[in-house]
Simulated assay, not measured.
Amino acid sequence: MARTKKTAEGGALSGELLPPTPRINLANPECIRQEMARVYREARGKVINTAEASRLVFMLSQIAKAYELSIIEKRLTDLEATTEKRKSR
Rank of each mutant, 00 (worst) to 15 (best):
I24G: 04
S14R: 09
T82D: 13
Y40M: 12
S14Q: 07
Q62A: 07
S88F: 02
S61A: 13
A2W: 15
E68T: 11
K6D: 08
I48R: 01
R38P: 00
T83R: 15
R89A: 10
C31F: 03
E16S: 12
A81D: 07
D78R: 13
R75Q: 14
A37N: 05
L76V: 11
E68Y: 14
V47R: 11
Q62Y: 04
S61D: 07
M1V: 14
R89Q: 11
R33C: 00
R38N: 06
Q62R: 15
I32T: 00
K65M: 08
I48D: 00
R3A: 08
A66F: 10
Y67E: 13
T77M: 14
T50K: 15
I63V: 15
T21F: 09
E84M: 09
K6W: 01
T21C: 03
T4V: 07
K87H: 10
Y40L: 13
P22Y: 02
K5R: 13
M59Y: 01
R75Y: 01
E35T: 07
A12P: 01
M59W: 00
R41K: 10
P29C: 08
Q62K: 14
S54H: 14
L60K: 04
R55H: 01
G11F: 02
P22L: 03
A43W: 06
L60V: 06
E9V: 05
G10V: 05
D78S: 12
E52Y: 10
P19K: 12
L56H: 03
